[in-house]
Design a protein around this nucleic acid. Sequence first.
DNA 1: TACGTGACTCTAA
DNA 2: GTTAGAGCCACGT
Length: 105
Amino acid sequence: MNRRERILEAVRAIPAGRVSTYGDVAAAAGLRGAAREVGWALAGLAEDDVPWWRVVNAAGRLSLPPPSCGEQARRLRAEGVEVSDAGRVELRRLRWTPEIDRGPE
DNA sequence: TACGTGACTCTAA
DNA sequence: GTTAGAGCCACGT
């Protein structure tokens, strides 16, 4: 399995209504410290098959370029995730990792 | 092979 | 809360 495939698998594992960070996705794919590679993998996505919009940076912000970040915010809201005007999500409440799967409560 | 770049992270101020 | 610097890995030229 390629690195990129593993990354995409990890992203697919993120449940709707939850978000994860680039670092967490990289770690889940067995590529700790390769957060930037997650960006690369997602940047080349042509499929709607992968919920790339559920991936945000460690600060809980959408670090995408303008066209995509608006789309990301829209899709997240469609799943019930609150996105502030500054493009931030409540990471503390909605963060999800394969290991720690505790609900939003 | 080497260098620059990027949808990043962490720590410190 | 923000910004700046160093570290990280893979890709394209």
